[in-house]
């Protein structure tokens, strides 16, 4: 059970950042899993009053505030239409509606959790995060950074034309994925992102141009094999490393085939 000494609803990012320099202070997002572990927090920094709970859409991008909930993402028509429902597909099986009404995109990305459906799907897009005070970095770069005392302010998804498909294997429908897979064609390149390996999601690009000649069952399989060969999988109680490799291959192949179908439409 968590123990918190002080609760501070901050008025500005500056104030949040300052407080966050304290070693035992913590920004609270959706506050999921408060009851797990025995974390001792000095000051809980609540950033829910900073207006970061909206999805702003411009001609160039979606600016998704850190406090936007997974349910908001799931129900955002424009974002889902832009991403062929892949955002919806990535979040719809996460625990339940109540959970998704609370869990935030900021909390989900900040943790850079291995099991994250969100990190997996957004890594397949032309996406960035805005950190305070660091500034804007690509989501991929962010996913490889160590956790520090900065604050995740926004997730930015550029409206770079994209074909994208998301799927995950779950042993029980609302469980963490055994393996998650997003594939996309964006900025002229094919990407496969494999999450829940069970380590953090990893991006594999088609560096060998396997799909350059077009998507056929043969090239999709070859690319899927390439992806599977270029990720490291591990074992835990949800699945063994070998099975995860196998799933990476199957899901990548199926997703790429779906991309191909979309392209021909």
């Amino acid at each position: 059970m968590i123990s918190i000494q002080k609760y501070e609803k901050v008025q500005s990012l500056e104030q949040a950042f300052e407080l966050n320099q304290g070693k035992k202070n913590r920004i609270i997002g959706g506050m999921m899993w408060l009851n797990m572990g025995h974390t001792k927090v000095n000051t809980a920094i609540d950033i829910s009053g900073l207006g970061l709970n909206t999805i702003e859409e411009t001609d160039e991008e979606f600016i998704i505030g850190a406090m936007v909930t997974l349910r908001q993402l799931e129900q955002h028509e424009s974002l889902n239409s832009f991403t062929s429902d892949s955002v919806k597909n990535a979040v719809k099986d996460i625990v339940g509606v109540q959970f998704r009404n609370m869990a935030t995109i900021g909390g989900s990305l900040w943790g850079r959790f291995g099991f994250s459906d969100l990190l997996t799907v957004f890594l397949a897009m032309d996406s960035y995060v805005e950190l305070y005070p660091t500034g804007i970095v690509s989501l991929k770069e962010f996913s490889e950074m160590k956790r520090d005392n900065s604050i995740l302010v926004n997730l930015i998804v550029k409206k770079t034309p994209i074909k994208i498909c998301y799927s995950a294997m779950r042993a029980q429908r609302t469980d963490f994925p055994v393996l998650a897979c997003a594939t996309s064609f964006v900025n002229g390149e094919y990407r496969a992102v494999i999450g829940a390996r069970p380590a953090k999601a990893k991006v594999v690009l088609d560096n060998e141009g396997i799909l350059d000649s077009g998507i056929t069952e043969e090239t999709a399989t070859k690319f899927a094999e390439y992806v599977a060969a270029n990720i490291v999988t591990g074992s835990n109680n949800r699945g063994g490393a070998k099975y995860r490799k196998h799933l990476a291959l199957v899901l990548t192949m199926r997703n790429i085939m779906k991309l191909g179908g979309d392209r021909n439409d």
Binding site: K9, L34, Q98
Partner: peptide, 13 residues
């Protein structure tokens, strides 16, 4: 009006 899990919400919030 939104369904949430009260086990994961600080009363303060």
């Amino acid at each position: 009006d939104t369904p949430i899990l009260s086990c994961s919400m600080l009363a303060a919030r």
